[in-house]
Design a binder for these strands. Structure first.
Lengths: 128, 128
DNA sequence: AGATTAATACGAATGTTATCGTATTTTAAG
DNA sequence: CTTAAAATACGATAACATTCGTATTAATCT
C-alpha cells in the first residue's frame, strides 16, 4: 500500500529487467546483457544505474571496487504501478477495455485461457 | 497492417481523447475541456495541436478563421498500438501477465466478467 | 476606416531522457 | 613504487516534450 510514484523510465526499466533476471550484478554484466539486444555504451549504462541509485530504484554495494547493483523495487509492483498509470492515461481508467483488447489481440494458448478463466471463476466466487 | 510507429505523447493523447469524444473541434473548445482537469494555456494546446497536424495525428479545416481539428487516428488503433508497445516494454511481450494483473487489480463487475468470459469462449471456439 | 476582439504563427525557455567522452580513482601486476 | 588496466564520477550534448509570451493576422463593431 505504499504510494510509489517512482516510475522508471524506459531505459531504467530495461536495466531493472536485467537485474530482476540475473540478481545482483555489476554494471559490466548488465551492460553486456543489454548489448545482446542493442548497442549501448558502458558509461551510458553506468550513468543510468547511478541515477537509479539516487532515485532509489536500485541499491548498490560499494565495498569492492566493482559496485554490485540490485533492484530495490519488485517486478510485480513496478508492473502494477506502470499498469495503473497506463490504464488511466490510455483507457481512461477502464481496465475492462484493456483486458478485452489484450485478449483479442493475439492467439492466447488454451493453457493461458484456462488460467485466466480460473482467475475469473475465483473472482466470481468472491463477488457472491 | 499499417506500420504506425506514430505514438502520441501524453499531451497529444489527452487532446486526441477530447477530439474522439467531441468530434471535430476548435482549439478553444479542446482547451476548455482540458482545463476542466488541469490548467493549460491556450497557446500550449494550440501548439501541440499544430505539431499533431504535422505528425498526421489530426487534420484540420482551415477554411474558416477558426480552424477545426479532427482526429486522424482511431481510438481503438491508437490504444492497440500503445498497448503492444506497453506489453513489450513492461511485460516482455507476455500479454497474459498483463491480463492477469489487470483482472486481479480491482473489482470488476459481474457484467464485465461475463463479457470477458464470452470473449474467451469465442476464442476457444476458434482454437479448435 | 479605425479600434477592438479573437484567432493563429512563431520562437524561446525549461525540463527530462539518453548518450557518450574524458577525467579520476582504485586495484593489481611487474 | 610505478605503471597498466578497469572501474567510477562527472560534465557536455542532443533530442524531445511541454509550456507560454509575443507578434501577426483576420474579423467585427461603431
Amino acid at each position: 500500500m505504499t504510494f510509489k510514484k517512482n516510475h522508471p523510465t524506459e531505459s531504467e526499466l530495461e536495466i531493472l529487467q536485467v537485474l530482476w533476471e540475473l540478481g545482483p550484478s555489476s554494471v559490466r554484466r548488465v551492460n553486456e546483457v543489454l548489448n545482446t539486444k542493442r548497442a549501448v555504451g558502458y558509461t551510458t549504462s553506468l550513468k543510468i544505474m547511478q541515477i537509479m541509485t539516487e532515485k532509489g530504484l536500485v541499491t548498490r554495494d560499494t565495498n569492492s571496487r566493482t559496485h554490485i547493483y540490485q533492484a530495490a523495487v519488485q517486478e510485480n509492483e513496478t508492473q502494477s504501478s506502470l499498469l495503473d498509470s497506463f490504464i488511466s492515461k490510455t483507457y481512461r481508467g477502464c481496465a475492462k477495455s484493456l483486458v478485452l483488447q489484450a485478449l483479442g489481440k493475439e492467439k492466447t494458448s488454451p493453457e493461458e485461457l484456462a488460467e485466466i478463466k480460473a482467475l475469473i471463476a475465483k473472482m466470481e466466487e468472491n463477488n457472491d
